[in-house]
């Protein structure tokens, strides 16, 4: 293949970019130096590790290994989405629900595409399954995190509205409708903006990567379109499932509002 190799010394050279950010942070007294350095090193370590894991996986492609890696990705995404939700229930309550929401979103987006649009041979072909599932899980993670973050906070700050609606005979679904709409709007905004600006502002990572490594642009573009549509489905399904869980946590079976206790 015809791509420029990045040697290790050149890779280290790119750390200079982090140095620029750290320098700016120090100058402006933002106090972000440690976080930037830690993030840069951790990110690199994680990527290098996954590089080797993928290499290993591609050489020993077996459904169990593919499934294991997907499971690790799912659990990590869910743990991240359920972390530090202010005004929300504890992490132990949110975590299993995040797994279900992210898993449902990813499943809906991934299965039909691999069944009909990009057929895999064999069906557990890691080359495609892992990177594309990763993108889906990551988008679902962000959507679910935003939903959890926002819905519990708005239920708390607008509790009097919600209770006034309940007192007029609203069902929990009706009483929470405004908050749900605002929450899903905010959570889906990045995905929708991505659709609107793709190609104009950003050339998405997957497409860029394919082009850099020699795939004809016209094929890379088709892949990217499929990915974009998948991301929309992931966001919608994961967001709606997360909202459904949040609603069940916010109301009793007798339609009483119960704000989560930490």
């Amino acid at each position: 293949m015809s791509y420029a190799h990045i040697t290790l010394p050149r890779l280290l050279l790119s750390l200079g970019l982090i140095a620029v950010a750290i320098g700016l942070s120090r100058r402006s007294r933002l106090g972000l130096e440690r976080a930037l350095l830690w993030g840069a090193l951790r990110g690199a370590a994680q990527l290098i590790a996954i590089g080797y894991v993928l290499l290993l996986l591609f050489n020993h492609e077996h459904p169990a290994w593919v499934a294991l890696l997907l499971a690790v990705m799912l659990v990590t995404a869910a743990a991240t989405a359920a972390r530090r939700v202010e005004h929300g229930p504890p992490r132990s309550v949110l975590f299993p629900r995040a797994i279900a929401a992210i898993g449902a979103g990813a499943l809906v987006a991934v299965v039909p595409v691999f069944a009909a649009v990009v057929p895999l041979h064999p069906w557990y072909e890691a080359h495609y399954l892992i990177p594309i599932s990763g993108m889906m899980l990551s988008n679902a993670m962000n959507v679910v995190a935003l939903v959890f973050e926002r819905i519990f906070a708005s239920a708390r700050s607008e509790a009097d509205q919600i209770e006034a609606l309940l007192a007029l005979g609203a069902t929990p679904r009706q009483a929470l409708e405004r908050q749900v709409r605002a929450t899903l709007g905010a959570a889906l905004l990045p995905t929708i903006n991505g659709l609107l600006t793709v190609g104009l502002v950003a050339l998405p990572g997957m497409m860029t990567g394919q082009i850099v490594s020699g795939t004809p642009p016209e094929q890379a573009v088709r892949y990217q379109i499929v990915i974009l549509y998948q991301l929309v489905a992931v966001a919608a399904v994961a967001g709606l499932v997360a909202v459904a869980f949040a609603r069940r946590l916010l109301f009793t079976s007798r339609a009483q509002l119960v704000l989560p206790q930490r």
Partner: peptide, 10 residues
């Protein structure tokens, strides 16, 4: 609940 709360206003 919806029926009860239309009959008993709060």
């Amino acid at each position: 609940p919806a029926q009860f709360r239309t009959r008993v206003a709060f």
